[in-house]
Design a protein around this nucleic acid. Structure first.
Lengths: 414, 414
DNA sequence: TAGTCTCGGTCAAAGGTCGG
DNA sequence: ACCGACCTTTGACCGAGACT
């Protein structure tokens, strides 16, 4: 190979000339660490980005010079490496850049064009219409005044907690739609009523929907968006997933007014002491499942979460704060320094906002209220383990891949 | 704002994290108000000085880290703003450095430059802050200013079509999340790639997700909210459901660049002439299913929808208009008088807005464009029948209750 | 005065494009 | 289908000016 024959000092000398050290053509600067020509530059980049590999048909000693460089790609690439071209200097793919297509252009007037006609000019047009639609003119006027944003968004400069309260109502609507089995059900505007005793399948169903909602929620957290490390994000989310599910279901139970059972967000329910028959269900160990879902763990969960919350008039903003605090306190999870700093800061902000929120809601005795909320947190951590024990026994729950890793991270928060 | 009460020690921790808060690379000091690396510094400066604006091709959630920061400029710039980089801290153009020392007096910024030494105006803000840790004051301010809505919402007074374009990007994100099987998949921000040949189960899966999204979409139509009669709503929605599904899947195929197949929104695909084995699948009549899914009907669907749309550069606004027109033209459905009037009006408005939209997008030959779109409509009606024939053969599709009534209404539009 | 910090500008070297 | 001339974007580096 060339690499064994080329002395590094030779490359250095060669590099000081104006010649490509790969093929001897006129060089055009340094590329990937060595002085080289445009052709060899592009050739090396393509070979690396597309992860190409070639085989020489003539024993790997083909000459690589200005004229013959295209004769054997294997030897050309080998020489690129031999003279020291650095594979690591090839960067990850960038954005594609097409000349056509009006949606991805850098046209500085693009925003202007969109924003320039912002007072819904379409309706002004319809007034000078002489079309058959004239019979609908009154309707037309009404429509023009119509503001379709329902329910109204909060002012965009409001604090995160206010936006989260708004988003939570939105999430509940969406959750309901996702858990409906049919169009008819979505359309029927009334709240679904209590349905059946819950089975193990319900956990799979609601978790699937809640994962999506959790993801949408978490993406709206400013501090989460500031995380750079993908690992941090994954770990935080895994550790949080079952806590999110627990809080959501507990609060749903509270909202429906039940205190003796856990009503899942799809309105199927679990009453401790009233086990269902798991026949035909997809569970690893029926007895164990019965012990957890209908025995002491569930009874304790209801006593320590559903009852306390039920005894207070919990506000949406308080629930959202509990979510935030739980998310940013993943337990025994290894995070980067940056993530640690961000989560500490996020908790801080969440608590400050809670205080402001309680003041603005006119709550008396704010200190006691905050203490109450903080005291709930350990209970969530404890009973989150009950969730874990349940889903662990549902094989179909493991359809969500990386099951083992997921469970490890879930556990780290237990 | 609340953020002004941030505990300084946390900010200090954050600031001593020697990472760029945009991409996580090694930071090099504060730039435009946040700790950032050289690259993000230069990138932000260029973007602001040249007044660039980008549009993400993937819905505005691309990862922005050390390795991927160049992959999507829209998301990189969005994150720059998100973490608080201050546009106003970018100074006006300085004198251009030329070798002969002269500069261009025709430069529009020439007067401005002579006008005075306006040095970093953003720091005027920090002057009235008497807090400790003055070096970290900018970060403090920026957290307070943080607006988590990314991509930014359109102005609330914009026309329906503009809002729908924004919502569509949001819907695509949500659709993706709903079709992901695991947290990991949702988190991996890259676009899913082509997966397997589609089976009948895929139709059940994607329809379930699309029903929810369709419902959310339709609820944002002002005219739909004005409907009083519940029957009208149900009929319109039933007649529309499969058309919505068809359009969405056809457009998804177009966006991925395929012309020889239908790529479903979960990225499983159907190639005419390349049938799969339905063994073990839940189909009424395997042969009939094969004939439809891989035979002439699918081939015709691709020829008459995927190819024409593929031949044009279809804009989001155009797709949204097709949706609206299809929704308000349910075919042979008995509606109340009010609903008839509303749907006529809704079509009217949709067409007017389309015209305005095409003007604002700078499309040439708008008449031809509109004609093209209108000519697509009958094809959608025709091939919507293909969808019907397929789902009719999938018993599990009928889990959505009121199956017979649903199918009747679906058929009325065929 | 010397040191430091963050501006803007510069240009070698990345990446992408597209006719041959 | 590959090549490579050509173009755009990136980011390491530098000097300027303000502040300490």
């Amino acid at each position: 190979m060339y690499a064994t024959k080329l002395n590094p000092s030779h490359i250095e000398i060669l590099s000081h000339t104006e010649q490509c050290v790969v093929c001897g053509d006129a060089a055009d600067g340094f590329h990937y660490g060595v002085r080289s020509c445009r052709g060899c530059n592009a050739f090396f980049r393509r070979a690396v980005t597309f992860n190409m590999s070639f085989t020489c048909r003539r024993g790997g000693r083909c000459p690589v010079d200005k004229n013959a460089r295209c004769a054997c790609r294997a030897c050309r690439l080998a020489k690129c490496y031999a003279v020291g071209m650095d594979k690591k200097a090839v960067q990850p793919k960038r954005e594609v850049h097409t000349s056509n297509g009006s949606f991805d252009q850098n046209d500085p007037d693009y925003d202007l064009r969109l924003g320039g006609t912002r007072t819904s000019p379409s309706y002004e047009l319809s007034s000078d219409m002489t079309s058959p639609g004239s019979a609908f003119t009154p309707l037309n006027i009404n429509l023009a005044r119509f503001t379709p944003a329902i329910p109204p968004s909060p002012p965009s400069d409001s604090s995160l907690i206010v936006r989260q309260v708004y988003d939570f109502m939105e999430q509940k609507r969406r959750r309901r739609a996702m858990l409906c089995g049919s169009l008819e059900e979505i359309l029927s505007e009334q709240e679904m009523t209590l349905r059946h005793p819950a089975t193990s399948e319900d956990f799979t169903t609601i978790f699937q929907a809640q994962m999506v909602l959790m993801f949408e929620w978490v993406e709206k957290l400013p501090e989460f968006r500031m995380l750079c490390d993908h690992n941090d994000k994954t770990k935080l989310l895994r550790a949080f997933a079952l806590k999110y599910m627990l809080l959501d279901n507990v609060y749903h139970t509270y909202e429906l007014g039940f205190r003796d059972r856990l009503v899942l967000v799809n309105n199927n329910y679990i009453v401790p002491g009233v086990p269902i028959n798991f026949k035909g269900s997809d569970v690893v160990d029926e007895n164990q499942m019965r012990d957890i879902m209908f025995g002491e763990p569930m009874r304790a969960l209801i006593n320590e979460l559903v009852l306390p919350i039920g005894s207070q008039n919990m506000l949406y903003g308080e629930i959202m704060t509990i979510r935030r605090i739980m998310f940013w306190n993943p337990g025994n999870v290894q995070l980067s320094e940056m993530a640690k700093a961000l989560s500490a800061e996020a908790c801080n902000v969440a608590m400050k906002e809670l205080q402001q929120y309680l003041i603005s809601e006119g709550v008396d005795d704010i200190e006691a209220r905050i203490k109450f909320i903080l005291l709930l947190l350990p209970s969530f951590t404890t009973h989150h383990k009950t969730m874990y024990e349940i889903v662990r026994l549902i094989p179909s729950f493991g359809k969500m891949s990386d099951w083992n890793q997921f469970m490890d991270d879930v556990l780290s928060g237990v």
